[in-house]
Design a protein around this nucleic acid. Structure first.
Lengths: 168, 168
DNA sequence: CCTTGATATGTTATTCCATAACCCCTAACA
DNA sequence: TGTTAGGGGTTATGGAATAACATATCAAGG
């Protein structure tokens, strides 16, 4: 299940932080937004969000499903995928195409695109603003008559810690 | 096999062009580069490249395999994947993460990253320079101490033709 | 109260994407 | 001629995702 063991458990944006508060705070924020918009943050959905927040890295749907299964919250793939669909649709979780995995959004707001910095050394994932890059690509797109609806921007490389550790 | 039938067969960069010359020219260029660098452009590898060039859009590995099978060039997945590995490793073909598919490079040079404009209406794929976006994201990455090695940039939206046709 | 509709969940089975592992062939070269 | 490295053929399997159908829950309206 865990292909990136070296990952430090309390890292976000490649810096340590108060992880407990981070989880609770984000869950609370998401719950509030769901209440405000009439969305149902059901037990399974909430738990999937918590699992992703607790790891602070990208997890595959089947990794998440393993946890759900242990807790008796569902044992078949559609359970995990439906929760992930809900969470991604509303911008609480992002899908990382390059990893076939999912990561909790670090600033859950409206449905939005994001850029990701993915460390190939430890598997850490940091979210970054996508707008500058979108603006850059939009120039080309406009010239070609293409209308951009959604953008995937994922950079693989080394985080500060892994660079220091001499990983590749 | 073909989920995007409406695709116009002779489109590149969302503009029509001399398709026959385009295929032959690119294959010749690739063959030349392989000869120069001591790479083996074997029959299977060459055919896979031709198949991708002929469609001018992203194809799944199994779509390609179907064609190879019809032609007696191989019938099992590893045949297609090995050829695709070779072609992508040397920058002759790009992998489109968001589609789990592959597309021939429209300017085969050294191994390079590229940005893609993917039309959700007809499946057409255009390649665009990734450098402006890379520069934009590099700002953020540098600030975080992250070193970018490889970038995936894929924009989904509507090409001019599909926009005109009122597709979504 | 009951029914209807909407939404969420449970479950089985399948499809699609990708690779491991093994064997054989051939070209290049000592 | 023996050896070795790369390419290809094949079987089998693993991992990601969804189709299709059944069940449950709850709110609104008759």
């Amino acid at each position: 299940m865990d292909k990136h063991a070296p990952q430090t458990p309390d890292m976000i944006g490649f810096e340590t932080h108060d992880h407990r508060a981070c989880i609770n705070g984000t869950v609370a924020a998401v719950a509030e937004r769901c209440a405000a918009e009439g969305l149902q943050l059901t037990p399974v959905r909430k738990r999937v969000l918590e699992i992703l927040l607790a790891r602070h890295r990208a997890l595959g749907a089947y990794d998440i499903l393993d946890v759900l299964r242990e807790e008796g919250l569902g044992s078949q793939p559609p359970v995990a995928y439906r929760a992930l669909d809900f969470l991604t649709k509303h911008g609480f979780v992002h899908r990382i195409e390059g990893l076939n995995a999912f990561a909790a959004c670090t600033h859950p707001g409206e449905d939005h695109d994001a850029a990701f910095l993915i460390c190939t050394g430890c598997g850490a994932v940091a979210e970054a603003p996508v707008e500058p890059a979108r603006a850059a690509l939009s120039q080309t797109a406009r010239a070609a008559g293409f209308t951009i609806a959604r953008m995937v921007l994922e950079a693989q490389g080394l985080c500060p810690k892994c660079t220091a550790d001499g990983r590749t």
